[in-house]
């Protein structure tokens, strides 16, 4: 697979790179194009579909990944996940990174009360984050016996990706007690943080 990373570029630059990569691609090989704006995504999809190629598109926040096989052969599962042209812009373009098990500075009791309120309120919020990351003592929030575990599970079923730092779980010796989401490493956490338009640190 060939990858074109056109993040940070405006139309028509991402399309030029796509066209170039496609020309250099061998038949039946797959091309992945990554862009960070809706207009580029739509235009690249229109262009590829106009060439009779079938396009697959995945959007996480404002990051769009476009997959296409040269020569327009159908993907093996036969159905494209979502049609690019009709895809609506996802509003949940932010992530929340919890670096501790309380909210703000000040008395510990208050901080824990506040973080509980924060997370329990979140499922009712109109715009959900697309990912929540738990680092350092923040991992305590995602443990089985956490006071907000039900809310986190609810968020997870609503499609919010929940990620806990593996090193941190190890350090606190809580690796077996994670109650929600998945364990991840610093590499992935950096990827997610750097790809997001907005990161909230409560």
């Amino acid at each position: 697979m060939k990858i074109v990373d056109a993040k940070g570029m405006q139309c028509p630059k991402p399309l030029i790179l796509t066209k170039k990569a496609l020309d250099e691609l061998s038949e039946n090989d797959t091309l992945k194009v990554i862009v960070d704006n809706e207009i580029s995504k739509i235009n690249i999809c229109r262009f590829l579909e106009d060439q009779g190629m079938q396009v697959k598109c995945k959007s996480i926040g404002n990051i769009h990944e476009i997959l296409v096989i040269k020569s327009g052969l159908v993907f093996e599962d036969g159905v494209s996940e979502e049609s690019c042209a009709t895809d609506v812009l996802k509003e949940n373009n932010y992530i929340i990174a919890f670096q501790k098990d309380k909210l703000g500075e000040g008395p510990e009791y208050l901080g824990k009360l506040l973080i509980k309120g924060f997370i329990n309120t979140l499922p009712e919020s109109t715009v959900l984050p697309y990912c929540m990351i738990f680092i350092n003592s923040g991992i305590y929030l995602a443990l089985k016996d956490s006071s907000v575990i039900d809310s986190l599970k609810k968020l997870e079923t609503k499609g919010v990706e929940i990620i806990a730092c593996g090193t941190c779980l190890d350090y606190f010796n809580k690796i077996d007690e994670l109650g929600v989401g998945k364990v991840s490493n610093m590499y992935e956490i950096i990827e997610i943080l750097s790809n997001s338009a907005k990161v909230i640190y409560p």
Partner: peptide, 8 residues
């Protein structure tokens, strides 16, 4: 591939 958005 230099196609302006307005054309699309």
């Amino acid at each position: 591939g230099c196609i302006p958005n307005a054309a699309f």
